[in-house]
Design a protein around this nucleic acid. Structure first.
Lengths: 339, 339
DNA sequence: TTGTACGCGTTATCAC
DNA sequence: GTGATAACGCGTACAA
């Protein structure tokens, strides 16, 4: 069928094992035979069979990516192409391939992960999201399978290698910025409260309010289902309170888009009637009307670093759990106004 | 180490080959032993090793996805999560896994594909884009490796299984719609002319103009580099012609976003000063201000069908090249006005 | 209906 | 330095 190590061995007049050593660039092979073998490989167009290799030495040179349920609205977020770009950049550097696992339901995804690790398809797994009570993390820990997560694990974060932004601090900064602009009636619009990132940012928001002696109000917290119809009503409810907020913290640029649409429909405008600080700084934000003030979380680096951590673990199995914080940065554009 | 077919065999008091047959659900095994073997598998928590299986029967139950260069701006388009969602839905149905290949440069991607097919990592390959003069297609054809492409191949489309929209027709429809609204000065703003989809839509545009006896003008064609700075100037150039267009056909919603920003900066507004028909109908378009009139190309189905075609080819190697057209649909929102 | 024996392409462990 | 040889875990003729 296709050219194997044996064919190369025959042509180069050596044993298959020698060819294998040349591939691994073993130092105990003379330069002369190395050269001869390499020429033979070149001539025959030899490429190693990864499956055979995996079988023999129990590693795959591949990592598995776990995305949220594709039925999940979050899936549509340009966040994912961008993390994947970061991940694959690092993976490429180390000659690792990328496996993907998605499914329509939590269960499907879970099963996919099981298949990945038992089927020996990957050497490690990268979780691209973090939500509370995730069974996959427990599974991975139980099996002692190398993994790391993007975002902060909801439980036992100290024992889990993860890379994250300091979302608590980011939430504080966003809020502080608005406070400094003179706002006091600041509402918080977050995505699913299952997502750890939402929780952290909200905690930062509350802290900043407290530090500034601003009363925290429950009715200023909105959990909007990402770009959904329900979201519109939630915003309208918010704006028709007796004392509506003068500013919004929104945990995702895509949500901000939806919200700005709703605000527009109500005949209000940003930032004159209401200011917005958003998160994630997607490329799109720059082209919104008006351009979004947003906290850049360096999505690319999130992916790049997470892949790096995972590969470190794979190379060096008894590595301690590590936590990497990727710096964020407030990008001021035109959705905030001094009160 | 981990539980193998032999362990199961021992526990169930059968030969390893019998276990193998049970896994394959061979009809020549009595229900009784099947049951016994399955119980043993369950009890031991057995999962087949994919690498061993691949080695033995020369298939991997995995397909490879090739995305454009991640340095490419197109990479950030929510188009990709959505096609992937379609692809992985179909892949899941047939129990196939998904392998990804990206790179910063064309060369890296090419090498990745070579590694995939020679390393026997996948049974087939799906190209998620189509640009002219792509070396990967030639490679795949030469190696007679199963593949299909999303979009229309630039050369020899008849011999290549692909799934696409009828972009020519879609281009015509977009143009006709504007013509019916009374527009005659219609410009065409496309992405890279390397992309076959851009070309097809432009051809449709020209045809529609011709059919309506409207003069085609070279200075009404803009090739904007997707959301880039240069794009802004291109639009400003367009709008400051002696006879500026009254309507725009834009080949991607993301571009439309950028363009609407530029138009806004110039103190003009959509649709009062200029109408826009866009393409792809990303979820975001609904939340633009004003909401985008856009041609929905059913990205999910594009992916779902393409995966289906590929899997058909893999199952049935001597299958003829097939072409699948996914229907599109004009979604009227608020970026077009009667003249 | 089930078991035996071999091959898939590599790597690793001995020998020499 | 290099060559046999035995795994790795599974599928499949062939035999029984």
């Amino acid at each position: 069928m296709s050219v194997t190590i044996k064919d190369v061995a025959k042509l180069a007049n050596v044993a298959p094992s020698t060819v294998s050593r040349v591939i691994a660039n073993s130092p105990r092979i003379s330069e002369r035979t190395k050269k001869r073998v390499r020429e033979a490989m070149e001539y025959l167009g030899y490429h190693p069979n990864f499956n055979a290799r995996s079988l023999a030495n129990k590693n795959t040179q591949a990592i598995g990516l776990v995305m949220p349920s594709s039925a999940d609205k979050a899936f549509q977020n340009p966040f994912f192409p961008e993390v994947i770009r970061g991940i694959s950049t690092k993976a490429h550097e180390k000659n690792f391939a990328i496996y993907m696992s998605t499914g329509q339901t939590e269960q499907e995804i879970y099963d996919g992960v099981v298949a990945m690790i038992h089927g020996r398809r990957v050497d490690g797994i990268l979780l691209l999201y973090s939500r509370v009570g995730d069974r996959i993390i427990s599974l991975l820990q139980e099996k002692k399978f190398p993994f790391s997560v993007i975002g902060k694990p909801s439980k036992g974060a100290e024992q889990i290698t993860h890379v994250d932004n300091d979302n608590f601090k980011a939430g504080m900064e966003a809020t502080d910025y608005l406070i400094q602009l003179g706002h006091e009636r600041i509402a918080f619009v977050g995505g699913s409260l299952d997502l750890v990132v939402t929780i952290d940012r909200m905690l930062g928001y509350k802290k900043a309010l407290g530090d500034a002696d601003i009363l925290y109000r429950d009715d200023y917290i909105v959990q909007e289902e990402f770009l959904k119809e329900g979201g519109r009503e939630a915003i309208m409810g918010l704006m028709s309170l007796q004392t509506p907020p003068t500013a919004l913290i929104v945990t995702d640029d895509l949500m901000s888009f939806g919200i700005m649409g709703s605000i527009d429909e109500m005949g209000l405008s940003v930032p004159e009637d209401i200011s917005i600080v958003s998160f994630n700084n997607l490329m799109l934000g720059e082209f919104a009307k008006p351009p979004l003030t947003s906290i850049d979380i360096d999505i690319f680096k999130l992916g790049y670093q997470a892949a790096g951590c995972l590969l470190d673990q794979i190379e060096n199995s008894d590595q301690e759990a590590k936590r990497v914080i990727v710096p964020h940065k407030l990008i001021k554009r035109q959705t905030c106004q001094r009160l």
